Computed example of a mutant assay.
Amino acid sequence: MTALQIVRLPALSDNYVWLVHDPVSAETIVVDPAQAAPVLDALATRGWALTAIWNTHWHPDHTGGNAELKADTGCTVIAPAAEAAKIPTADRLVGEGDVVAIGGHRAVVLEVPAHTAGHIAYHFADDAIVFVGDTLFAMGCGRLFEGTAEQMFANMQRLAALPDATLVYCAHEYTLSNGRYALVAEPENAAIRHRMADVERLRAEGEATVPTTIAAERATNPFLRAADARMLAERRAAKDSFAG
Rank of each mutant, 00 (worst) to 15 (best):
G65P: 08
T76H: 04
A44S: 14
A36R: 11
V20R: 04
N66I: 11
D32W: 02
G74Y: 04
G74W: 06
T73L: 10
I53R: 05
T76N: 02
G47P: 08
V39R: 06
L50P: 08
A26C: 13
V30H: 05
K86C: 07
L43D: 08
P80T: 04
T28I: 10
A82K: 12
A37C: 00
W58E: 11
I78P: 00
N66P: 06
T63P: 12
C75A: 12
I87G: 08
L69I: 04
P38D: 08
T45I: 13
E83T: 02
T73W: 09
V30I: 13
A49C: 10
G47C: 08
E83V: 03
T56C: 14
T76D: 10
G65D: 11
A85T: 12
D61V: 13
Q35Y: 04
A49P: 00
D32P: 00
A44G: 09
V31R: 00
E83P: 00
D22Q: 02
T89M: 13
T56P: 10
V31H: 02
T45M: 12
V77P: 01
D61C: 11
P88G: 07
D41C: 05
V77C: 03
L50A: 10
A42M: 05
H59F: 09
T89Q: 15
C75K: 04
I87P: 08
A82R: 13
V20T: 12
T56D: 12
E27W: 05
L69W: 03
A44F: 03
E68S: 08
G65K: 10
H59A: 13
Q35H: 10
P38S: 04
K70E: 00
D72F: 03
I53T: 02
T89R: 06
L43N: 05
A81E: 14
E83L: 00
A81D: 10
E27P: 06
H21E: 08
A42D: 09
P33N: 06
P33R: 02
A49Q: 14
E27I: 12
T76V: 15
P23G: 03
A44W: 02
P60R: 15
A90L: 03
P38C: 10
A71K: 15
